[in-house]
Design a binder for these strands. Structure first.
Lengths: 252, 252
DNA sequence: TGACATGTCAAACAAACGTTTGAAACAGTC
DNA sequence: GACTGTTTCAAACGTTTGTTTGACATGTCA
């Protein structure tokens, strides 16, 4: 139980144990509610260990997120050399499955997704680090994938919105897991790692259908790509009494 | 400044002022990090006011969420009598726009969305109340809308996944707003109420394209609706060397 | 062995926390 | 005015917080 009593005790091992324990506690209750006493107790270390190995609680938090990003980048790399030659649709499937695999991790790194979710709702300086080190590279790769799928005629703004639509379907299970499990308690849709393949299939199919539709309409209105929104108007053309004056005039 | 000095002071007005102040503070820093001293200071009340009008800090939190749900249901009703006769596509556009309007509210009730986001990643007893009073009715209405759009041949599980795909694109801006603004700082995509119409147009168009595709494939495989996933396989059929043995064997 | 650096430990620190207390202010009724 | 119930107030309560302290244990090199 005590870190000192561990016979195979490499130097500065308590530092690593503290990092893991802190990651779990921070993910469980958040930065403010987490106490260094509980972190040290889980790590089997003294209360003063945090202030000795790290300067203070906040520095410990930053180090936790820094190491967490490094862990995510090696355990769940968002791109693979081997898939570079695969068709973009299959790469998109890999991208989505990889994102879901991190979110549904129920093993040693299950706390990672929860910690990221907290940081997004209540950003600290660590969020800039996360964005620079992982989120922005992921966004860039996703943009390249979408560009290959929708072609060159699609405007950048639409592409950006599509990228957000795709990742949102994945991150949803990271931020709203509690609601989904309560909304469908008896369902087959168990939010476990086993659900990743079928979920990835759905999100990929859902998104590819939308992307292919956008690719069609953007090719059709190639000369005036900014007015692609008219296609939505066409969809919403109604066979009944209410006639919308413009899409923006629809009930909001 | 002081609640007592307010001339037009109806009885139990401090209670209402406390509720509003508490909602903002809880949304800003979360339940644990929020202090009754700050809440009372913002409300212009004494420190003991919370324990007098409400029993304790936790009861105050529950009352805040209860009144917040009531506010959301009157300010952002997820369904309107007037739209009942409109085509389902237009109703879906209204549903999405309504959800986004709440999320992008930057007025008096801007704290509402943030409070809900916190409750989802760290659920308390209040989450059950939220689900029963608002989320489940919303989910039911969305299911009815999707059913009208995709037809009767689509299986329930696919429909559920589609509903989650649609709401996820909206809630994304509630949970990941900090990331989006940092990722595209100079962009036209400002996350303000003014962005709601165009964003709702995109999400509606994106989702309708996917739903219509699913409606087509589910009609085609009407006799065996459970194997709709094969359509994704067809999409992923690749012209190069790597041949996927099954969709689940794709890189995860 | 002695000196030194590195970790660990129990104990204590001041500050901030939610909550309680008893007096005071207020409004309405007789 | 005297009485009653409601609301507000400054002050204090005990607890928990992050952090510091000085002693102690351990390993290393001369």
């Amino acid at each position: 139980m005590n870190a000192k009593t561990d016979p195979a005790d490499p130097p500065a091992a308590t530092r690593a144990v503290l990092l893991r324990a802190a990651g779990q506690v921070f993910a469980d209750v958040g930065f403010r509610a987490a106490t260094v006493r509980e972190i040290c107790q889980r790590a089997g270390a003294n209360v003063a260990a945090v202030n000795y190995h790290f300067r203070d609680k906040e520095t410990l938090y930053l180090e936790v997120l820094r190491s967490a990003m490094a862990t995510a980048n090696v355990r769940y790399p968002f791109t693979r050399e081997a898939d570079a030659a695969a068709p973009p649709e299959q790469q998109l499937r890999g991208f989505i499955g990889n994102l879901l695999a991190l979110i549904f991790d129920d093993g040693e790194h299950a706390w990672l997704g929860r910690l990221v979710a907290r940081e997004m709702i209540e950003p600290s300086h660590a969020l800039d680090l996360m964005i620079a080190e992982r989120i922005r590279p992921m966004a860039n790769q996703l943009r390249c994938l979408i560009r290959k799928i929708v072609g060159e005629t699609c405007d950048d703004e639409t592409m950006r919105l599509c990228a957000l639509s795709i990742v949102s379907q994945c991150l949803f299970y990271n931020h709203c897991r509690s609601v989904v499990t309560r909304l469908f308690p008896e369902q087959k849709l168990k939010l476990t790692p086993a659900a990743v393949p079928s979920l990835a299939d759905h999100i990929t199919g859902f998104s590819l259908a939308a992307l292919r539709d956008i690719a069609r309409t953007s090719q059709r209105t190639k000369s005036a790509p900014a007015v692609r929104r008219h296609s939505l108007k066409a969809i919403l053309r109604k066979p009944r009494s209410h006639r919308a004056k413009s899409s923006s005039a629809l009930p909001v």
